[in-house]
Nucleic acid binder design. Structure first.
Lengths: 201, 201, 201, 201
DNA sequence: AATGAATGAGCCTTCATTCAT
DNA sequence: AATGAATGAAGGCTCATTCAT
């Protein structure tokens, strides 16, 4: 019997190496060689597990999205009210894990990748849509449907914007401040409709 | 007749070609050859005017930023109240010119470029800072300083987020809706402090 | 039950797979992987049985040559006159088995292989020489020795040429026509010397 | 003005290098690097003139076919009778230029290439068809049409066969002998129909 | 006997950049 | 000012071959 069961470990190593490499160089100009080296194997082996460079990238994207999805679900599990759930989404987006420099840089790069890789675009769009409908669902319990749509869009945009600015600037707001910013937006939009909730702490 | 004084025209052609090419492919994987061809000249000539590929990219970024700056200034000129000026900034960001698919795609790409090109980063940061202080300045006439900082950041983030989402999705909000979203954010944050302004139309 | 005595079967499978693969792609650009897959085993195993890719190719050539030799011998067994025996050789060369598209393509490829693989060259030369002397032997009973040599060469050339053209063209003569062509050549050359034989049907 | 007019020379050098390289190694496993080196330039430049490796090969084939075509036309120009013209074709095929080891080896390789490169196949088929109809045309003046077709096919096959055998064997007939062989075939087939022509010298 | 895992070497191709004219 | 010509350096991918189990 051959040396077996290496596949999951190797694939994981490659995915992780890809994210690190992209995150650190902050660009898509990452060679399979760099990735493989960081993952501790030859380029040939990288191609053995992922037939193509694009496949590696997609796997890395999928990993980040999945990780994020898992995080959202975890945080939402312990929430009871719709508002708690909305805040859970915000907090997950701006959690220590997701807001790590490396991850944020990778996100940005993937957004660009999505502009010309149909598959990457699909992936990102699916995630965005899911998140959106999740928010709309919870918002609908508090405000009219059409307003819910707007608020969800506004919240998501602000989060994405914070990401993009974080990737670029040192002077960008830190995690707590960023969270407060988004929570505040939510609070205000809801307050207008008459939904009262305590000030974001 | 010697072809003299061609330099500005050639440079402009290259810059414009660069933006188009990047905007249309939605990526930085744009060769000097493609740019030169679109600009109607040889690669050698492109290198004659811009010593390096990076220089071309930087010039293109500079152009977009300058263009945007000009637009903001124009719109602000006819504004009288601080609020008018703030809305002018928002409107400039989401104007037909800036919100064109091609331009938005280019912006996104430049953000990524800024992650590993120090010069590009500096450029983008200067622009962001300028815009930020511009907003803070106007906001300070209406709300306390620290609050002004937050609102400026929130507004800018939302705009950037809208850009990023526009680049990716077909279902992203259109221009008028996007503008309403941001204006609304502004209105609400100000209203909380007691500043009353008419509802965004 | 230990899988014992698998060797001959495995080798045969590989040889057959090699011929099919070469015959179908019509080129030497056949990977060990393709061959092994078609033979239903791993590349590693293919290398276990044949230490090297060249060895696989040589075995395949040897197989085709052997198969052809067997065919010639079989057909000649039931022939009585020299002319019958000569026709048997022609018929064997253009038999349904040998004239199959796949086999013809493989032949052609092996001819090329022989140009730079000394071993392959030797193999092919041995076969050619044997066939030649076989024909010369039979022809010598009918015509002078030097004439016999020429006729043998002419016949063999024509057959080889028919192969090459068959590999290339759809409009090449079909099997019966091809056989008639070669038999006719033989008949005419012999007739000139005074040997009379009935017209090829 | 740039260093100009290099194109024809460079292309010719590459074509010639390709033929030499293929002819000498006797295989299609010839790298662009080898070709470029022999032609005295970098691989990049080779790709500058021929976008693709296949394009180089096709150009080489085209060159050989063109050269051969030219040779046939030249030889036929000084021929008066149909028989002279037929012999001119034979002689051209077995001329010193075409029968050079290198050229013959290249022919064989191209035949294989034609098996999986549609474009190469087309090229070779066009040439074969042209030669065939040329022969048929001349033969038709001497024998019935259907017989003409057969004789043309037989002659062409014999020539092709001689090539293939020449590529492989040292003991293959030399040029004069080869020519005599084919001319003899022609003489005999025609003689049968009653066309008398002097013995091939 | 059998195979998944692993790799070094190599090939085609692209590209930014330079040079000669 | 302008460009065809030229190249070094790299990158993605393939493949024969070997190894460990």
């Amino acid at each position: 019997m051959p040396k077996v069961g290496q596949e999951p470990a190797r694939r994981a190593a490659l995915v992780s190496a890809t994210i690190s490499e992209i995150g650190q160089t902050g660009s898509l100009d990452v060679t399979v060689g760099q990735i493989a080296k960081r993952a501790g194997m030859s380029t040939a082996l990288a191609h053995y597990y992922f037939s193509t460079k694009d496949a590696i990238f997609l796997a890395a994207m999928r990993h980040i999205l999945t990780e994020f999805g898992r995080l959202v679900r975890t945080r939402m599990a312990s929430a009871v009210t719709p508002i708690d759930r909305l805040n859970a989404i915000i907090d997950a987006s701006l959690s220590r894990e997701q807001f790590a420099d490396e991850i944020v840089a990778a996100w940005l790069v993937f957004y660009v990748q999505a502009q010309h890789s149909p598959e990457a675009g699909r992936l990102l769009r699916v995630y965005a849509r899911r998140l959106h409908s999740n928010m709309v669902h919870n918002l609908s319990m508090l405000v009219p449907r059409d307003r819910a749509w707007d608020i969800a869009e506004g919240t998501a945009s602000m989060i994405d914007g914070i990401y993009i600015r974080h990737a670029l600037q040192d002077s960008a707001p830190d995690r707590p401040k960023a969270r407060a910013l988004v929570r505040d937006y939510l609070r205000l939009t809801l307050a207008e409709i008459g939904v009262r909730l305590e000030r974001a702490h």
